[in-house]
Design a protein around this nucleic acid. Structure first.
Lengths: 150, 150
DNA sequence: ACAAAATAGTTATTTCCCATAACTATAACA
DNA sequence: TGTTATAGTTATGGGAAATAACTATTTTGT
């Protein structure tokens, strides 16, 4: 196809790190969508399930904060995962307002299969990256995150 | 690093480059939204306007491809920018199916003011980055993009 | 030359993402 | 004990993203 365009229509945007970051992100997020599709998971349901498996008993509000999702938006996600019997809500006996979120056996199994596939697909994308490249990229991205907090 | 910090509910996700990339991206995209708000621009209207200023006469379909937006979704964006008198559609005399998109004077002025502000805000985020850091990050992100195509 | 296929732009529709206000029930606090 | 804060939720709306299908042209194949 004719991608031999000498004049890059987005040249003016290439000067922004945010734009370059977004384009790189798109590679991962569209890949993720494809990989998760067979599991009937999306990015948000995947990361929610992963966090619940990682931290059994976690509260919805904790999850919302760590995943940068508004609490109301997470309710439907948790509902969906619970309806599919991948996680469950258990009333906290010490705080009857709250639920702890726990993975079911099925949830753990599904997550680990999905994670395995995501991992393989990411390795494919990053196949030309040296260990030093990986470490450097990871460190630079972390630096951006901390820059936002300080 | 497989150390599971009980404080980090997303520890399991930190192992994925896509997740780390997304978190870094969020810093830029939420910053962008704030910076563009006074101009009544969003990420998509900003990048569309920028591309039109960068490449006067560009077609909607070219824009859709370069910006990774589906053509139908770009129609409303172009409508919006045209209604605000920032760009205009001009029939291509050599291909009466197509329009060339051109910036108005107002569009150019608004874009340059907005770009100036975006640039300043990005510099703030990247304030602790050395020139070498910037070059390295840019090169690693470009490597991800090319990995997706090849 | 002309029918078939491709292209540019568009409309319509659907699903999902993201943000906010407001409600309930409990808990913490002063 | 009465006020305030917190956890979860409902409802709502705007915006992003994907797809099917249409009109008007242009290109292509024979």
């Amino acid at each position: 196809m004719t991608t031999t365009d000498p004049q890059q229509e987005d040249a003016i945007l290439r000067g922004f790190m945010g734009y370059r970051l977004k384009r790189a992100m798109n590679v991962f997020s569209s890949n993720l969508a494809v990989v998760l599709k067979p599991f009937d998971l999306r990015m948000i349901t995947f990361s929610t399930l992963a966090s619940v498996v990682n931290t059994p008993g976690v509260r919805l509000s904790q999850l919302a904060e760590i995943l940068s999702v508004e609490r109301p938006n997470l309710v439907a996600i948790v509902d969906e995962l619970q309806k599919r019997n991948l996680i469950e809500r258990k009333r906290d006996p010490n705080d009857r307002r709250a639920f702890g979120l726990f993975p079911t056996k099925a949830g753990q199994t599904l997550l680990h299969e999905a994670m395995q596939n995501v991992d393989v697909s990411e390795r494919k994308i990053l196949e030309t990256f040296s260990d030093a490249d990986m470490e450097h990229l990871t460190s630079l991205l972390a630096k951006i995150e901390t820059a936002a907090k300080g």
